[in-house]
Design a protein around this nucleic acid. Structure first.
Length: 214
DNA sequence: GGCCAGGACACCA
DNA sequence: TGGTGTCATGGC
């Protein structure tokens, strides 16, 4: 059993799997919309919804906000939970617009409270808030999603049974650059898709035999 | 056919 | 504050 730390884990995964390029999107709005559409949904369905939205609006903010609720729901229907998600998309885009889409201004205004502010938005919970911090606001945070929870449990970490528990326990030390933090999350999800399908937890993988020490 | 996928929220004690 | 039911589609 080899003991490793988080940064070791990151290096091993990066070495084995290569760069993921996460978050895969061409624009800030695509990340925002994609992060909402993917909630508890497989990527095929979320991507289908995203593509329909792209065709209809080019993911232009004004176009998106000018859609009626019914029209928006209809476009994103394949992603499921379309009533909730249409509200979420609308509330988040409206919030950005109310700040003139000035990301630096938003960061400066809320600083340490930015996460709390994001959590107030309808449809933005713990995970989506952290995804926004990491990929929209360029803050190197750890995203404690289900794949991360499963993997860390497999690596011998206890007390990571849900998002809040894990977030309280796990954070990135200063060695992680922004790019590395973004890749780290990408690697978790890519890893999860391959090795953590369903409840068949952890098929044999290159991470067998490691124990993670936080 | 039932299960599941990169959650979030309302409701309740 | 924490636990439970609900929201929904499409692939396997």
């Amino acid at each position: 059993m080899k003991i490793i730390n988080q940064y070791d884990l990151f290096k091993i995964m990066l070495e084995e799997m290569g760069e993921t390029g996460w978050w895969p999107a061409e624009s800030r709005i695509e990340i925002v919309v994609g992060a909402i559409l993917i909630q508890n949904t497989n990527w095929i369905n979320a991507d289908r919804a995203l593509n329909q939205l792209k065709e209809a609006t080019q993911l232009d903010q004004a176009n998106l906000l000018s859609l009626t609720e019914d029209a928006l729901q209809d476009l994103i229907r394949p992603a499921g939970f379309y009533k909730n998600k249409s509200k979420a998309i609308h509330s988040v885009l409206t919030w950005f617009e109310s700040h003139n889409n000035n990301l630096e201004g938003i960061k400066a205004r809320y600083q340490e409270d930015l996460r709390k502010e994001l959590l107030r938005l309808h449809g933005v919970g713990e995970e989506t808030a952290d995804v926004f911090l990491l990929y929209i606001f360029d803050l190197p945070v750890f995203v404690s999603d289900k794949y991360a929870q499963k993997l860390y449990r497999e690596l011998g970490v206890v007390g990571v049974d849900n998002y809040k528990m894990m977030r309280q326990k796990v954070s990135l030390d200063s060695r992680f650059t922004l790019w590395e933090a973004q890749e780290f999350h990408g690697l978790f999800d890519e890893f999860g898709k391959v090795y953590l399908r369903g409840e068949g937890i952890f098929k044999t993988s290159f991470l067998e035999g490691y124990q993670l020490k936080l």
